[in-house]
Amino acid sequence: MAKIIFQKPKSLKEKIFHYCPGCGHSIVHRLMAEVIDEMGIQGITIGVPPAGCAVLAYNYFDVDMIESPHGRAPAMASGIKRMLPDRMVFCYQGDGDLAAIGLAESFHAANRGENITVIFINNAVYGMTGGQMAPTTLLNQKTTTSLAGRQTLLDGYPVKVSELFSQLEGSAYIERCMVNSPAFVNKTKKAIRKAFECQKAELGFSMVEILSACPTNWKMNTIDSCQWMDDVMSKVFPPGVFKDVTKATKKAAEVPS
């Protein structure tokens, strides 16, 4: 008898992704769907997609979803989670959505320790609107609104969201990952799982920042994009765990009362 070793996750619909070749969104969607399947939480998960390329995420995820205005997903998710504390609630946000227009909402959701999970796609550029400068655009990176490359005097510096949010006492788990190699993809999946587990254990705000390629707007081919992430992008946004209270909580739980 044939053994199934690979198939479409149950939590993804029968739809073909509209994302560009080499884009990280489709990879992350799949990883999330696998995690949702593995945890058996499809029926209790509610997602809030962003304004941005992933705005159509509700066409792909086979879970309840609600659209939010640009950047407001964490506020909306806060409302949902507070009313339905036993559901799994996630926001899916891009860098413009989370770190520019929606910085207040994401920052304060983290600070309140809202028990939600944010999947944060950082591709250092505005994808859907056609390649403008993002808050995470690297110095000297060329975009359609930073033609000579991002200049500190004009445009300030790339915003390091994981570093920032890990300083907030309300955040429970913050990790930055990449999806430009099979090894990193596997690592990202583990991080997503951990973030969801963190929510399940009611530990507070969890976020996985995922460095993701946008070959179209970077004006690179997919291979160069992956290479650029290794050589340049990950130097500014180093991957790693920035906050993890799960261990401390475990230890505390082991201490006999």
């Binding site: 809030v48 609600i66 939010s68 205005p69 407001r72 506020a75 909306m76 998710a77 806060s78 409302g79 949902i80 507070r82 009313m83 339905l84 207040a104 909402e105 920052f107 304060h108 309140r112």
Partner: peptide, 22 residues
């Protein structure tokens, strides 16, 4: 549930989320 939001923008979106849950 009462939340003192970080802004009016956040407040309206919080109630939108809670409204969606019924």
């Amino acid at each position: 549930v009462f939340i003192q939001s970080e802004s009016e923008v956040a407040a309206i979106n919080m109630i939108a989320g809670a409204s969606a849950t019924g």
